[in-house]
């Protein structure tokens, strides 16, 4: 009889821990996703920035050697990620395919120029730097003109700045909410034991001794919550990586590991601190003050 009663009581206790664990897990999961977003804003932004090409058109008078030389020097430059040489014949072929008729037939000649598409490293994709590079290239006497989408570059940079800023603000707010939520769940569970805490003090236990099992208990809940959050994050990451492989979200294992460890430690730290302060609060009260 009594054993089934005790089991029932234990089950009730476990279900009250359950909600604490779930709230810790959800909050840490959100925090982790935001961390992932912060870590990847640059990567995603860079991904788009590196799609932007600078096209260098050569004069028809440009010699093969000059073009070859420029191609080499571009390949050596810091700002270049990759280059593609498009000969006027290739360009004509592509253009004909695009418009669906062979324009050279009625023109009688190929008006297109030899060109190089320069894809730049993300760090160099800003309006000023691209202007500078374009000016330098235009300066060469065998280069006819350099074309790039200037408004797109400024738009991209502005938006990346804006988005990163708001992601940071959101992470700040979420961290704050996380701490607040976990803190209040733990405060409640400590509050429910305030008379037990007082009794422990009455029989000569030191504050540290009383606090230790409470902290251990909540850190355990924190660890379970963190593990659940990490499983959630891993699953979500797996899904994202499958859906958008080009973003290479799971690429940098080191950063991902740091993020996972960070979320885990946050779970422990928040529960540890919350319990510490919650128990201190009741440990420092005199008996009569517990009833207020």
């Amino acid at each position: 009889m009594s054993t089934s009663f005790e089991k029932y009581q234990k089950r009730r206790l476990i279900s009250s821990y359950f909600s604490v664990v779930i709230s810790i897990a959800l909050v840490l999961f959100l925090l982790g996703m935001l961390g992932l977003l912060v870590l990847n804003t640059k990567k995603v932004a860079d991904h788009f920035k590196e799609q932007i090409a600078l096209t260098v058109y050569f004069k028809d008078s440009a010699k093969e050697v000059e073009m070859e030389e420029l191609k080499k020097s571009l390949a050596m430059a810091d700002y270049t990620k990759s280059t593609t040489f498009v000969s006027k014949e290739d360009a004509a072929e592509a253009h004909s395919k695009e418009i669906g008729e062979d324009f050279m037939e009625f023109l009688g000649y190929n008006p297109l120029q030899n060109s190089i598409d320069v894809y730049m490293n993300a760090d160099y994709v800003s309006a000023e730097q691209v202007d500078e590079i374009a000016a330098e290239l235009t300066g060469k006497n065998f280069v006819d003109e350099v074309i790039y989408d200037k408004p797109l570059i400024s738009l991209l940079n502005d938006n990346v700045k804006k988005i990163s800023f708001w992601v940071l603000i959101a992470s700040g707010i979420f961290t704050f909410i996380a701490v607040l939520l976990i803190n209040s769940s733990i405060r409640l569970s400590v509050y429910s034991k305030r008379f037990i805490i007082k009794t422990m003090q009455m029989v000569g236990a030191t504050k540290g001794f009383i606090r230790r099992p409470f902290i251990w208990q909540s850190v355990k809940l924190g660890i379970i919550g963190a593990i659940l959050a990490l499983i959630g994050m891993a699953a979500f990451l797996y899904y994202l990586d499958n859906s958008f492989p080009e973003l290479d979200l799971a690429g940098d294992i080191k950063i991902l590991a740091a993020l996972f460890i960070g979320v885990f430690l946050t779970g422990i730290l928040i529960t540890w601190l919350s319990t510490f302060f919650a128990t201190s609060r009741f440990l420092n009260l005199k008996t009569d003050e517990l009833y207020y």
Binding site: T199, M200, Q201, M202, V203, G204, A205, T206, K207
Partner: peptide
């Protein structure tokens, strides 16, 4: 705490630790 270890205090409302059995109550102390 160290003063209380030299005293034994008995209360009107017993003040046992309600979340554990008698032996564990004493073991805790």
């Amino acid at each position: 705490p160290y003063l209380r270890r030299k005293l034994g205090v008995v209360f009107q409302d017993f003040k046992l630790l309600t979340d554990r059995n008698i032996k564990d109550n004493l073991l805790f102390v």
